[in-house]
């Protein structure tokens, strides 16, 4: 498949069919089927250990699945480094613990991948870096090191860093759960904006306010399975499964 066809590809952003994954004997993901439309915003929730992180990490091959197919942006995810890197270019990821590169400045964090992966001239990459740092509202921190920023600022840099690669899909793995409460909203605001611009997003989060506000669909996972999925209104007000109800009562109860 050439790059040209890829940019014209307009099928589903992600298709996962009959996917299974094991850690040794432990069956972490059980027969996952999921189709994500272009521009769709999905929130994934579920108890700890239910396999949420593992699921989204399979999409950019941070974890390898053993059975079934994953097709990202029309490209099947197979054991081929070139294909994997082609997919990773299209998929941005934001981690719970930011994972910024501490030895590089904020701007260098942002321009690194455009320079080395996209072979962009340094000037241009830095201009793009500044553009996205402005979007996440911290251009004035561009020349500091990550260690000098607050958690919320670091997470916004991490989002900007991903956006600099102009991904077509963004994955978020509990982006606010390592933050002090007063910093959560500054990160969520950036994510809401991103969602409103039409980015395809898969978000593991327990921020139900965010889910209600922007999600097109909420997925509930438990024990490695997708137990229930629905649009947010139905999901929160009229859960079908006992396990979903129990989970919702636990996280909304306090």
């Amino acid at each position: 498949m050439t790059t040209n066809e890829k940019t014209e590809y307009n099928g589903p952003a992600i298709e996962i069919k009959g996917m299974n994954k094991w850690y040794g004997d432990f069956h972490v993901l059980k027969d996952i089927n999921l189709e994500v439309a272009r521009g769709e915003r999905i929130v994934i929730c579920g108890p700890s250990g239910s396999g949420k992180s593992t699921l989204i990490r399979c999409i950019n091959r941070l974890e390898e699945h053993q059975e079934g197919d994953i097709i990202v942006d029309g490209m099947p995810l197979i054991n081929d480094l070139k294909k994997i890197n082609a997919i990773r270019k299209e998929v941005g990821m934001v981690f719970q613990h930011f994972n910024l590169f501490p030895h590089l400045t904020v701007l260098e964090n942002c321009s690194l991948a455009p320079i080395w992966v996209k072979k962009m001239p340094k000037k241009e990459a830095e201009a793009i870096g500044m553009k996205f740092l402005e979007r996440v509202k911290i251009p004035e921190q561009a020349h500091k090191y990550p260690g000098q920023l607050s958690g919320g600022q670091q997470q916004r840099v991490a989002i900007a860093r991903s956006l600099c690669m102009s991904p077509r899909i963004m994955l978020f793995d509990e982006p606010t759960s390592a933050l002090d409460p007063e910093m959560i909203s500054e990160v969520l605001d950036v994510m809401v904006e991103l969602a409103q611009e039409g980015m395809t997003m898969l978000c593991v989060t327990h921020e139900m306010g965010f889910a209600k506000k922007v999600a097109d669909r909420v997925i509930f996972m438990d024990g490695g399975e997708i137990v229930e999925q629905n649009e947010p209104n139905e999901f929160f007000n009229n859960p079908q499964e006992e396990r979903t109800r129990l989970f919702l009562s636990q996280i909304l109860g306090h």
């Binding site: 941070l62 270019k89 991948a113 992966v117 860093r161």
Partner: peptide
């Protein structure tokens, strides 16, 4: 993981 996710070789 961050380096991998950005598509670095």
């Amino acid at each position: 993981e961050a380096a991998d996710a950005l598509g670095l070789s």
